[in-house]
Design a protein around this nucleic acid. Structure first.
Lengths: 237, 237
DNA sequence: AGTCTTAACTGGTCTGACCAGTTAGCAGGA
DNA sequence: TCCTGCTAACTGGTCAGACCAGTTAAGACT
C-alpha cells in the first residue's frame, strides 16, 4: 500500500490510492477491503476522513458498504456508475483497449437524437452558437472546447434533461479526449464542415437533416480515429 | 427545515431532507447552503455525519463544495449526474412532466445500438436468456423484471462497457417505471412478440434485424405510453 | 449434538478540538 | 483621500478517541 506523504489533501490522497489499487487489481472484485480503522492507518489518514472517501466511492459504485459486514469491492465495469470513467482517465495507468472507440460509439448512438430534438425545439440557439465555429483557430484545443460546448448546448436545448445528465458523466475528460482526436487535421476539417452543415439545417429548421449530418460526421469520426490510431502505431515501429 | 426525529439512520435522514429541500426549491440553484456546523444542528446530526452526506451529494452533482467558501447549490438538471434520477424517483413529490417519455426516448436512442452489438458478439447468450420469455406470467412485475434483466444483459454482451455504466444509472427505478408501463396488456403483448423476434434474430445471428426489431418496439413503446392508457398516478409504492 | 449466549469483529455516529483556505474590514501609511 | 496590508472571523478539512449498532462465529449450556 502506497502511503507516501504527499502534498495533496489527505482525503484526495486516500481516494487516489484506493482507486488506483482497484484499477490495478490489488483489490479484485468480490474481495473485501480491510476494516476502516486498519485501512485508515495504512493510508495515513484518520477514520472520519477515510469514511468520507469511502462514501464517495460507494456512490460511484466502486464498493458496497454494509453495516456490520466487511466492505466489498465491486466489479466497476459491471456495477459502476458513469463517474468511473473520469476516474479511469484521471488515475488509470493507461486507457483500456478500445476506450475511445467505445466513447465514440455511445456518442454516435446518442448525439443524433438530441441534435434532432435541439433543432426541433431551439433552432435559433443552436444556429447562434454555430456561428462562432467560423472563427475557430485550426488547433486541437479550440475544436475540443467548441465541440464540448456544442454537445452540451444540444443536450440542454433538446428538452430532454436526461441527455444532459448522461453527458455530464463525460465532463472533465471529453475535452481531453477530443484534443487527441482533433490533433488530426482531417478531423478538424470534417467537423468544420459538419458545423456549417448543422448550422444550415438549424437555420432552415430541418431537424431531420440535422440528425442526418450529425450521424454522418459521428460515424466518420470513428473511422477517422481508427485510421489515425493505426497510422500512429505504424509510425511507432 | 424538516428535522423530525425519524427511525432512520441519521445520515440517511439528513440526505433525504437535503435532497427533498433541493427538489422542492427550498435551496434554489445558485444559493448557498448554511455552514456545516449550523446545518448539522438543523438536521439533528453531527458534523462528520453531515459531511459524509455532503460528500455524496457533491459527487452526484447536487452541490459544489470549496474549501474556505460557502457550499453552493447546483442546478441539478444542468450539472447533476445520472444518479439524480434515482433520487428524483425516490424522494420527489411527483415525477416531472414528461419524465417517462424522456426515459423512453433515451432508451430508444441507446438500446438499438447495444442490442445490435450484443447479437453481433454474443448471440448465444442473448438467445438463451430470451428462451425464458415464453414462461413469463402475464403480469407487470414479471415483464418489468425480465425487461430490466434483458437490457442489462444486452449492454454487458455488447462489449462496450459504457452502455452498462449508463444503464446502471437507471438501476433501482427502471423496474418501478416498467411496472407502470407493463400495466397495459398491449404493452406486455408488444414486448412478448419483441422478445420472440429478437430471439429469432439472435438465433440466426442477424444483428441488423435485432437492431431493427429493437428500434421498432421501443418506438412503439413511446406511442403506447402516450396513448394515455397507462397513466397511473404516483401514489403507490 | 443442538441451541443459545456472548464476545469480537464490522461499519455508524458522536464529541470537540484544531488546521487551512477565503474574505471583509479595519489600521496604518503614502 | 486613497491604497496597502494585516487581522479576525468566517468557510470547509482533518484529527483524535470514544461509544453505538449490526453481524457472526466461537464457546457455554442444555
Amino acid at each position: 500500500m502506497d502511503n507516501h506523504v504527499l502534498s495533496q489533501r489527505p482525503a484526495l490522497h486516500a481516494e487516489q490510492v484506493l482507486i488506483k489499487a482497484m484499477l490495478a487489481g490489488s483489490f479484485p472484485p468480490g474481495s473485501v477491503l480491510p476494516g476502516e480503522r486498519s485501512l485508515a492507518a495504512q493510508l495515513g489518514v484518520t477514520r472520519p476522513t477515510l469514511r468520507e472517501v469511502l462514501q464517495r466511492l460507494e456512490r460511484d459504485g466502486w464498493i458496497t458498504i454494509r453495516h456490520g459486514k466487511a466492505t466489498v469491492v465491486n466489479d466497476f465495469w459491471r456495477d459502476g456508475g458513469l463517474n468511473v470513467l473520469s476516474a479511469l482517465v484521471r488515475y488509470g495507468e493507461q486507457l483500456p483497449d478500445g476506450f475511445i472507440p467505445n466513447l465514440l460509439e455511445v456518442r454516435l448512438a446518442l448525439a443524433p437524437a438530441y441534435t434532432r430534438a435541439a433543432v426541433t425545439r431551439s433552432a435559433a440557439v443552436v444556429a447562434e452558437l454555430l456561428n462562432r465555429s467560423d472563427d475557430l483557430d485550426d488547433v486541437p484545443e479550440a475544436f475540443a472546447a467548441f465541440d464540448w460546448q456544442l454537445h452540451r448546448t444540444l443536450t440542454i436545448c433538446s428538452g430532454n434533461p436526461i441527455y444532459t445528465l448522461i453527458l455530464n458523466g463525460f465532463a472533465g475528460f471529453y475535452e481531453q479526449m477530443a484534443r487527441l482526436y482533433f490533433a488530426q487535421p482531417e478531423a478538424r476539417a470534417s467537423s468544420r464542415s459538419f458545423y456549417a452543415a448543422l448550422r444550415g439545417a438549424a437555420l432552415s429548421g430541418d431537424a431531420g437533416e440535422a440528425e442526418r449530418v450529425a450521424r454522418q460526421v459521428l460515424a466518420e469520426s470513428i473511422a477517422l480515429w481508427q485510421s489515425g490510431a493505426a497510422r500512429y502505431h505504424w509510425e511507432e515501429r
